[in-house]
Simulated assay, not measured.
Amino acid sequence: MMKAFKKRGALTHFQILSEISKQDPHLKQKDLAKKLGITIQAVSENIKTLTELGYITSKDGRSPYKITQSGIDKVKKDAISLRKYSDSVLETMNHYKTIWPAIAKEELKKDDIVGLYMDDGVLYAHKKEENATGIVLDDAEENMDVSLTNLTGIIDMKVGEVTVINVPTIKDGGSKKCDLDLIKNVYEKGTNNNEIFNKVAVAGTVSRAVTNKLGISIDIEYAAPQASANAARKGLNVLAIVVGDMSKAFTRELESEKIKYNIIDGAL
């Protein structure tokens, strides 16, 4: 913070003096408190201090309040300090660029205008025309990360869906009571729209045992509800094999994120 406002209460003093300088004869302490978002007691204490410093005058600490020449000089000095500080912040913000990372699908050069698209949940940049574009900040080799700015347009991306297969707890028989043929068939068939599952999530030891038995690779294991919803938002379809009541965490997360899902009973 700039030097003029380093002392505790300095900004409040500046605000009170600024309001009093408007020469409103009906200005009350409660009006100042409301405008500044502080208590009437705090206003009273600050006015007492400002009076002792010779910046304002009043009769018995009551309105009408008048700002002295010393107070005017103080406000001007602090206002200039505040303006310089604000100008420096604005100058910094004008040079600040929002940077987005992507994977370069081909060799890209600084200042290239590129098209952007999503594939398998990853943002890619190339020189072909797309509905979304960006400007390359630094040279990048093919298949390497590239920094982009000035993103415009809409990235073509559909939202994926999640299929939750609920399997028995170990108390209810675990994997021995799972309909493995059903689970395998769902995995191989894909979504209700016959699209492949891009990611497989598990929640619970029984779920891991089932994937081991069926030779299905696990992509998501930790924070599975949140990770599954995040994957779906990026256009990926997720198969989640979930033990018992753990499915409730999935449904809550998916519903809150407005992700399409369906639940299948994976028990025999």
Rank of each mutant, 00 (worst) to 15 (best):
I196S: 11
K22Y: 00
V202P: 10
M2H: 14
K28N: 07
K59A: 03
K158E: 11
G204F: 06
E129R: 15
P225T: 05
T133I: 10
D245R: 12
D219K: 12
N150G: 01
F5A: 10
F14Y: 15
Y117G: 10
E142K: 15
V159N: 07
L27H: 09
V75W: 02
Y85G: 07
A232R: 07
Y261C: 06
N212V: 01
A10G: 03
Q29R: 15
Y124N: 06
V159W: 01
A232M: 06
K7W: 00
D181E: 14
N46I: 00
H13P: 06
Y222K: 15
K30P: 02
I165F: 03
G9N: 14
A209V: 13
G266S: 08
Y124M: 05
Y55M: 11
G160L: 08
K199D: 02
A209I: 13
P225C: 04
Q226P: 00
F250D: 10
I67W: 09
M157V: 05
G160N: 14
M93T: 11
Y55G: 05
M157N: 15
L17E: 04
M1D: 08
F197A: 14
P101H: 03
Q29P: 06
A267W: 09
E107Y: 04
K176S: 12
V242E: 02
A229I: 01
P225D: 02
K127H: 03
I16V: 14
R252I: 07
G244P: 10
A267M: 08
K48S: 10
Y117N: 12
I216W: 06
A102I: 09
I72K: 14
E195C: 02
E141Y: 07
Y55A: 04
A227W: 00
Q23C: 09
